[in-house]
Amino acid sequence: MNVLIVIDRAPYGDWSGRESLDMAFSLAAFDKPVALLFRGAGINWLRHGQLPEDIGQKSGERNLAAAPIFGVSDLLADQQAASDYRLTLDQLLPAASLVEVRPELYRQYDHVISL
C-alpha cells in the first residue's frame, strides 16, 4: 500500500500539519511507502530559513528535513502553490521537489489522506 499525505494548511497555525507528519513518520517506521504533498498555504512548510524560536515552536522545516532519514520517499511541492507564494526551488528545503498536481499524480497512490 502506497500512501500520499497532503498538507494544505500553513505551518504554526494548527496541529493538523504536525499530525500529518506524525502519520507519515509512523508509516515510514514500518517501511510502508509514504510521500508528502504540500499544497496551498501548506507549501510554506518547505520554505528554507524558518526561525520559530521567538513564537515558542519547533521548526517545521527542521522536523521535515528528518523525513528522508526516516524513509519518507518524497516531499512533493505543488508548483502552483509555490508560485502563488513566490517560492522557487532554491528557496525550498533541499529534499523537496516541484510537481504539477494533476489527477494522474493522485492515481499513483493507493491511499491519499488529508487531515
Partner: peptide, 9 residues
C-alpha cells in the same frame, strides 16, 4: 517580526 522570522519571510 517574530511571526515573519518564524516563517522565513
Amino acid at each position: 517580526e517574530s511571526d515573519v522570522k518564524a516563517r522565513a519571510l
